[in-house]
Design a protein around this nucleic acid. Structure first.
Lengths: 114, 114
DNA sequence: TTTAAATATACCTTTACAGGAATATTCCCT
DNA sequence: AGGGAATATTCCTGTAAAGGTATATTTAAA
């Protein structure tokens, strides 16, 4: 694996990096909700709620099911599992910290002597 | 705990929700680096690298140590530990999913009958 | 003390995106 | 068929933020 690509879903991540959308996600922890309910509970206007939900839906954070007039939104587990494994992979970083710092200082030293 | 505030560090999260900054973080896994090294490895101009690093620093994702002329940046563990516990807390959501859907449908039903 | 390297900062321009308001769409009910 | 509710979409506007370029700042070295 090259160091170039992050092992994380950037679409999902940046979707969550907006306060209202984060609040929507937190709200949906309790269970599925319709657009109107979400708008009410969060003090959002319906169009903004729909737009935020579209972003969350497009990025796979959330999924929709149609119930006649209404749309029921609920959390999807996949992005969170992905996120979790990404965060977990940082555990090694702290463990190897000192070794790397050591190597780095040694490298700096050799550059100075050129 | 009220349902209003997300249990996550939004500053750190939105700092990561930018491709170049995410790449910086991925790069810093290998160990501490100077601004110049980061700019080189990622093909960024020095000022942009500095600016991104400032954002990462202000949000606590990264910390700096001065070494004469140079600034050495490295990852901080705290925000990642916070992320991890936040993501972990979603585990309950999938477990309780069916119960909540059930409650929800029952509630919808009773609203229809008003 | 001048010079060069490494980094930070300031200023400008451009673009992405969030909110507001109006409207289109889809569905149920009578 | 017509009306109203729930939701999506469109258009407009303002703003935050990212990149580009120049410049200030700090430090080592000659």
């Amino acid at each position: 694996m090259s160091g170039g690509n992050p092992g994380i879903d950037m679409a999902a991540l940046s979707a969550l990096a907006e306060p209202n959308r984060m609040q929507i996600v937190e709200l949906l922890r309790e269970g599925p909700l319709t657009v109107g309910e979400i708008a009410d509970r969060l003090g959002l206007r319906q169009p903004q709620a729909s737009k935020h939900l579209k972003v969350l839906s497009d990025s796979g954070v959330v999924e929709v099911t149609a119930d006649a007039n209404r749309r029921i939104y609920k959390l999807r587990s996949e992005p969170f599992l992905t996120f979790q494994s990404w965060v977990k992979s940082f555990r090694h970083v702290w463990e190897e910290r000192f070794d790397n710092l050591d190597n780095y200082l040694r490298e700096l030293q050799s550059k100075d002597n050129q």
